[in-house]
């Protein structure tokens, strides 16, 4: 099956003009499957960490959003144990005008701004609300342990 031009263009642009702190490289044998890394934003508990993700473009992309999840363990109220991400643009707020690039930027922004009021990982969100300092410390610790560059 031929790869739609849009996916080719997006890939070329991701390679030619990479986003700071983000990389996305397609698999040679499956150009719909990308290995992604995102650097933790500065001044966030994830600073200094490099997080691996997998991204897959379904057959009906861009009518449906990319499927994406964290492979690196991360302590975050909007990311669950399986690495699934609670982000509106990956669900009901998807629009075909969005791109891989914009989605990865939103995920990077989510690392900089955890939102315990819209949680996916309930236990983490609970901790985050009860004792934010402790939660942030745990997030730092997990980053040091699991997200080594």
């Amino acid at each position: 099956m031929a790869l739609p031009k849009r996916i080719i263009k997006e890939t070329e642009r991701l390679m030619a003009e990479p986003v700071k702190g983000i990389s996305a490289v397609p698999h040679e044998d499956n150009l719909r499957y990308f290995d992604v890394t995102i650097e933790g934003p500065e001044q966030s508990p994830y600073e200094g960490g490099v997080f691996k993700l997998e991204l897959f473009l379904p057959d009906d992309y861009p009518m449906t959003p990319p499927k994406i999840r964290f492979l690196t363990k991360i302590y975050h109220p909007n990311i669950d144990r399986l690495g699934r991400i609670c982000l509106d643009v990956l669900k009901g707020n998807w629009s075909p005008a969005l791109q891989i690039r914009t989605i990865l930027l939103s995920i990077q922004a989510l690392l900089g701004a955890p939102n315990p009021d819209d949680p996916l990982a309930n236990d983490v969100a609970q901790k985050w609300k009860e004792d934010q300092n402790a939660a942030i410390e745990t997030a730092r610790q997990w980053t040091r342990e699991h997200a080594k560059p």
């Binding site: 001044q43 966030s44 914009t102 930027l105 922004a109 701004a113 300092n133």
Partner: peptide, 16 residues
């Protein structure tokens, strides 16, 4: 007590 003064929230997304 640590007060978070500033999150480094990058503009979430924009239309390209």
């Amino acid at each position: 007590r640590v007060i978070i003064k500033e999150w480094n929230a990058v503009a979430a997304w924009r239309w390209d």
